[in-house]
């Protein structure tokens, strides 16, 4: 079933590439494919960890704001440790941003587990709160200038073996999460918690620890995405580039085969879906479609993805969906 899903995603991706390739002969050029890859990276990182949290039966809507917060925090730390604008310590900037991200994730997890707040409500609230914090500490303005540092320049523009550095980062994170999910007992327990939380608890799995940890992972990786975003746009801005990423990440996860109820999903499927979204987005831009249609297309895709999921699980259409 998973294979069928991935095959249909590959089919859709091939279709999108073919259609836009015919409409615009620059679309399939290597440089444009690299553009697609880079555009996909930041949403891809968020989608990968979103997949992990959805597998556990949760969801994290706050990822976009967490990335924005990390963008601001990393560039402000970089500025402080340097001359007030740039030339600071990149490792400190990255480290502090990731620690803040992880802490934000723990806050999400604690609210959900101990506050007994529904994950959608909790992370929706934190979507607003983290965005507000990022705007408060930055005064709503872009902070610092990152491209005086070799590490940030490498993250933004560097490449290894012809592949952009940020795609390497996505690849490594995706591979690690994939291995965690598929080959370790931790991953197995995550699927179990999403599949049947009661059974998981009776089997002696400490569900609270898992839920808080997975939100912490999301926070840390969202921070990484925010750092890449800041490096790419040369400075950390509280909302530019990060606003709306949660929609992309969640759409990719569901399109890639995650079940809303949890217990299902794979990193491979999510990566295919996020690539499909990226190819579609760049394609629409290349052929000159009004960019406002992008949002319509993305919202429609999320609905389509969930409708397909529901049809496949064979849920009977009686009453309101739970």
């Amino acid at each position: 079933m998973n294979r069928v899903q991935n095959l249909s995603l590959i089919g859709a991706l091939a279709g999108v590439l073919a259609v836009f390739g015919i409409l615009n002969d620059q679309y399939l050029s290597l440089s444009n494919l690299a553009v697609i890859g880079q555009a996909v990276t930041i949403a891809g990182l968020l989608a990968v960890v979103q997949t992990a949290v959805i597998i556990c039966g949760g969801i994290d809507i706050s990822v976009g704001s967490q990335a924005g917060l990390a963008a601001v925090v990393s560039s402000m730390v970089f500025a402080w440790t340097g001359d007030g604008l740039a030339n600071g310590n990149a490792f400190a900037a990255i480290g502090v941003a990731i620690v803040v991200g992880a802490a934000g994730g723990v806050v999400n997890g604690v609210i959900i587990v101990y506050g007994r707040v529904n994950a959608i409500i909790a992370t929706l609230a934190m979507l607003a709160a983290y965005k507000g914090i990022a705007q408060l500490i930055s005064g709503g303005r872009a902070q610092g200038y990152l491209l005086t540092n070799d590490l940030f320049i490498f993250i933004a523009r560097g490449s290894v073996l012809g592949v952009p550095a940020m795609i390497w980062i996505l690849g490594i994170v995706a591979l690690l999460v994939h291995l965690l999910l598929k080959t370790t007992d931790i991953g197995r327990n995550m699927y179990a918690i999403g599949g049947n939380a009661v059974a998981a608890r009776l089997a002696g799995i400490n569900i609270n620890k898992y839920i808080i940890s997975v939100y912490m992972l999301v926070g840390a990786v969202a921070a990484l995405a925010g750092i890449i975003l800041a490096a790419r746009s040369t400075a950390g801005h509280p909302t530019a580039g990060s606003e709306g990423l949660e929609l992309k990440a969640i759409t990719a996860a569901f399109l890639g085969g995650c079940a809303i109820a949890g217990g299902k999903g794979s990193i491979g499927g999510t990566l295919l879906a996020v690539t499909l979204l990226g190819a579609l987005e760049i394609g629409l831009t290349v052929v000159g479609v009004n960019p406002f249609w992008q949002n319509v297309a993305q919202g429609a895709l999320l609905v389509v993805a969930v409708v397909i999921q529901q049809r496949r699980t064979g849920d009977r259409a009686v009453g309101l969906p739970g």
Binding site: R188, N196, V198, A200, G204
Partner: peptide, 19 residues
């Protein structure tokens, strides 16, 4: 209430929590 996870297979269920 059958503490089994529907999304896992027989082996995965039998070793759940004690892989």
């Amino acid at each position: 209430d059958l503490a089994l996870c529907d999304n896992l297979d027989i082996v995965q269920n039998m070793f759940l929590g004690r892989e």
